[in-house]
Design a protein around this nucleic acid. Sequence first.
RNA 1: GCGGGGUUGCCCUAGCCUGGUAGGGGGCAGGCCUGCUAAGCCUGUGGUCCAUCGGGCCGCGCGGGUUCGAAUCCCGCACCCCGCGCCA
Length: 429
Amino acid sequence: MTLLDIKMIREHPEIVKKNLKMRGDIEKLQMLDDLINHDRRWRELLTRANELRHERRKVTNEIAALKKAGKRVEHQIEKGRKLEVEINASEKLVKRYRQEANDILMKLPNLLREDVPVGKDENDNVDLKVWKKPPNFSFKPRNHLEIAKGLDMIDDERGAKVAGHGFFYLKGNLALLDLSLQRFAIDFMLKKGYTLIEPPSMLRRKPYEGVTDLADFENVMYKIENEDLYMIATSEHPLAAMFMNEVLLKSNLPIKLVGVSSCFRKEVGAHGKYTRGLFRMHQFNKVEQFIFCPPEDSWRLHEELQQNAEELYKKLGVHYKVVLLCSGDTGMVQAKTYDINIWMADGVYREAGSNSNCTDYQARRLNIRYREKEGQAPKGFVHTINNTALATSRAMLSILEQHQQSDGSVIIPKALVKYMDGIEKLDPH
RNA sequence: GCGGGGUUGCCCUAGCCUGGUAGGGGGCAGGCCUGCUAAGCCUGUGGUCCAUCGGGCCGCGCGGGUUCGAAUCCCGCACCCCGCGCCA
């Protein structure tokens, strides 16, 4: 299981080096050198081990032949025994070096696409476009938590009492709004021809290592005690892992999926980030777009997913910006990422969704390949692309904050009314 | 959760008891021959390492063990099928 192609690293280490520098992963440059050394040593040891195994094969064949002829074989068995000891020692070394090389390989990030701007952190991200103007309130806008409480739609204190900070009871129309947003996004994606998937809410470690950054096991995923199971942080993960170790037929590609699930995140290291109300919860619901496709189609489809997500926000009448993440802010798994940032009542734009082409990174780690035609050998790894359709928590807060009225009521976007049992306005009374 | 059966290359399947070069069929690819509504024949088929030709190693669900030698024997795990149990 490799994340970057080891052959490519051997032949063009400078590409990987440049990529690490762009990402600001300076500490990984040493890892790369170690990897190259381990890989070289591994190949030397492997060659030696293979020679020994070849010797053994000759001896065992000799034994078989001599036995058939009814001759004595003590001498050959003794030789074989000695060889076996050498082979064991040799194989142990080979395994160790391969394992160490692989461990490093698993920690190296995906190669960024050429058009990703170089930058250090989110401050260097590039605004690409803006839709609508920010709301211009004649009163001081409240944040969504104040609004939701005013409408008696949320109970954060009891959520914290039973599960801790970051968990909530959504009540009445807010719970209904959550479900409405899910159904709205799903219907929209179904019309676009995507297949609806309700995936497992937990994954084993092996598939999980394929879809995500290893650091996420510390910082993001909840682990089930005494089980090899992790709560999913997004349906992207079980969707990506769905075809692990499979070879897909090219004529069946692209596979376009829309996943719906609850998402669970520990949010370790959220210090200093905006954590109010619905913005950063330990549990939220999300409708997700996901595509498996041949390598040559992924950049076109990446743009298609972007259009889909923007259409959804437009239908909700929500003001947003599209941002291209810079090299330093792009995740390890991703080659290029667009975020949709929504305007919030404090005047700050915050991420509502994220659209990433992971190229062959996930597919390589999950061993998802494709073949040109039935009966042929696999041709290569597929590309995977994922994009939030709607994270209901953030869509809800954008609706509450952007569509709020001076009296504490909230206008429901027209597109949602039919899913809200005809409710057009959330009223305090 | 318990008992039984199973997992072999791109696909299907034989081999497992009784350890000794993984056989057959299909698909696909290339080549040959050529036509009578039929086709037939040959070669190849995954990963990886060294290399100039070429050669080697690995690969029988995964991981260990026994053995000169493991698809085959032993142990652990995963998944699938059948039956039983439990259950929204």
